[in-house]
Design a protein around this nucleic acid. Structure first.
Lengths: 381, 381
DNA sequence: GATCGGCGCTGATGCGCATCAACGGTGAGG
DNA sequence: CCTCACCGTTGATGCGCATCAGCGCCGATC
């Protein structure tokens, strides 16, 4: 095991080919301004082939060139243990695009996950510079992180829409607003007049967009919006909330609640969609989408698009108008949306929970997005 | 957006602290031989804090230091689309250990997957040098890859046992031999006298180990080994093969076949384990393990162990005896292994498939591992 | 015949850091 | 008093590469 065998350098190749190191560099760079004679070029390439020379990416990078490495920062573990891999579809798209473009991916796993999230500024910032640019993924979007990144002028792209006062935030996002509007409009078309929104009422962009779509559809139909806080409540509590508000349809913006709600409704003898229509606003867990009406988030495409934007920014040939891309969601017809029926039986309340303290109260803001803050949701993108 | 704001360098810190760049380097390196006065040290650290200086990993690496980046090379896509993520449990362990040690992970996604696998030497070789060391994962183990890596003296660790003529191959592997031996011994204890091995008969180490365990158990019991090629056959064909050989129990070393075989047997009215006991030799898809007897591969631990070995090698403080680690598999009792019953009904053959051409013939080698070559299996580790 | 421009190539430089040899200073020992 | 060891610090060097300015050479032009 000869540890001595150091790797071949350009200087070595140059010596063997009888040229200068600079010439080797030019030959290998290819599309340089400098011209190299065909004979010399072939001589160099021959030596490269014979010696098996391969460029040292580290030196390339230090010398100011690109190294075709893309950093990937996730606020949560890339490979979670507990549930099915949330990032997986995103990474499928990212890896495919990386392979297509010949890029390597640097996962910033060194930043420890503390209280559920990684910290970009404290731990990851230094390592960022290793890559040509960086992809950001995850539910958190510390405004300081964004401002810092923008301030540095370091190329980055967020997966999921983000906004910052510090400047333009490049992103690849799903069009939650349009998709939500579409599914709520469908409920309107089906004849519903009391359509609620149950979900995260916090400032996260992905939920703001859903609410905006909801408000647009409801307003267009001349209906009254009913916003309910759906964070950290179970299916029964949610159902009570809906019944209290005498809703016939609800758009649910959380990604476990729709199933819990469906279960609770059926358990109590309510017919879905007969007595209650349920649409879910995007669902990361494809396994459960079979039945529920709603829409699908184009995660794989988001990953691909994000990486394409990033390489465009790095190359400097992507106009700023294209730094933000919004991808359409595909609608899922499902089986939980249907025309409302006049209730023949009085909806049964759960006695124990009826009017229980701590049950979230309905919110009815005058302006979209102007609702009470709520804990962060479980849906990062 | 001031793209001009270049990042802070040691030289910058040195200037502000009124010391030399070398001093800054020494202060930050910490455990150097060189001593720095406490006052100077604090002055430097203050400036570092104020400026938010962070070391440039590229320069660190080029200058001969470590950069705390671990390369990860997989022969197949890291994030596969078609089936449940095979690498996932491995990566869970790797990521956890990387986080614990403050390491970043560089995924070599730039090497295109051609005809089902990535090529290490052609595409990935150059990029390898970017990292302090490298983890190799996947079903293929090109002997030239191994020889090349060993020859370079580049630190690497394989996940899964690998051997090479070129030298010691560091790995973290599952103890397939012991686990297989244990489950086959259990079949022996249950009273079986005709126990077959159905699986990959190729040279892949993971299958060689399984066969070795099988042979050990069978030989100890004074039984005759029956090796059957289980690659690329369906459940019915496999079942015919077993019936032809009048086996009462079989150890199956492929990871979809056991389920197909079980289905086929039950479909044909055979009782399992009454008429036929089936044990599977490790199963990557945890979703299906509920029923089948066999053993579980400690994938997460393999990932963790591999990374620990690698950092040990990089640090130079891991004795060579510990460069290869074999982890025990946990046995799964399951419901498909039981005592044999004297067959009251003649096993039913499928007429159409009986003796059909192309049906793999049984193999009965005199020496373990000395069997006909077979296509690569689906089990990488 | 002197000038010019373009072609083909090279020397020098620096990226940011780790590392080494060495230097001045200080106190202890002879 | 001189020597010596040791401490704290520094200048110099090089990692492998990209890049820039510029060199010598050639034929073409005036």
């Amino acid at each position: 095991m000869r540890r001595s065998s150091r790797r071949v350098t350009q200087a070595e190749v140059a010596r063997l080919a009888g040229v200068s190191q600079a010439t080797v560099s030019h030959v290998l760079s290819g599309s340089s301004e400098v011209r190299i004679g065909e004979e010399t070029r072939q001589r160099v390439l021959d030596v490269v082939r014979r010696t098996g020379y391969t460029a040292n990416p580290v030196a390339q990078r230090l010398a100011g060139g690109r190294n075709r490495i893309i950093g990937v920062f996730t606020y949560e573990p890339v490979f979670p243990r507990d549930r099915s891999d949330f990032y997986h579809p995103l990474f499928v798209g990212i890896e495919r695009e990386a392979e297509a473009q010949g890029l390597d991916l640097l996962l910033f796993t060194s930043a420890p996950v503390r209280s559920g999230r990684r910290r970009l500024l404290d731990d990851g910032a230094s390592r960022l510079g290793m890559a040509d640019g960086c992809l950001l993924l995850g539910q958190h979007d510390d405004k300081r992180d964004l401002a810092e990144l923008i301030g540095r002028g370091f190329p980055f792209v967020f997966v999921g829409r983000r906004e910052s006062d510090a400047g333009l935030v490049p992103y690849a996002a799903a069009d939650y607003a349009a998709a939500t509007q579409a599914v709520v409009e469908r409920l309107v078309d089906l004849g519903h007049e009391r359509i609620g929104y149950l979900g995260d009422l916090g400032p996260n962009e992905s939920h703001k967009d859903r609410r905006a779509g909801y408000h647009a559809a409801v307003a267009a139909a001349g209906l009254r919006p009913v916003l309910l806080d759906g964070t950290s409540i179970d299916g029964d509590t949610a159902l009570d909330l809906l019944l209290d508000n005498r809703l016939t349809a609800v758009a649910v913006g959380d990604f476990v609640l729709p199933h819990a709600l469906l279960d609770a409704a059926r358990r109590r003898g309510l017919s879905v969609p007969g007595d209650l229509s349920i649409v879910q606003l995007g669902d990361p867990s494809a396994a459960h989408t079979a039945e529920l009406s709603g829409f699908r988030i184009p995660r794989e495409e988001m990953g691909t698009a994000a990486l394409q934007i990033l390489t465009g920014i790095i190359a400097g040939d992507l106009p700023q108008e294209q730094w933000q891309q919004t991808l359409p969601c595909s609608l899922i017809t499902g089986e939980t949306a249907g025309p409302p029926t006049t209730p023949t039986t009085t909806p049964r309340r759960t006695p124990a929970l009826s009017g229980a303290a701590g049950s979230p109260a309905p919110v009815d803001p005058t302006r979209p997005g102007d609702t009470a803050a709520a804990p962060t949701s479980e849906d990062p993108a």
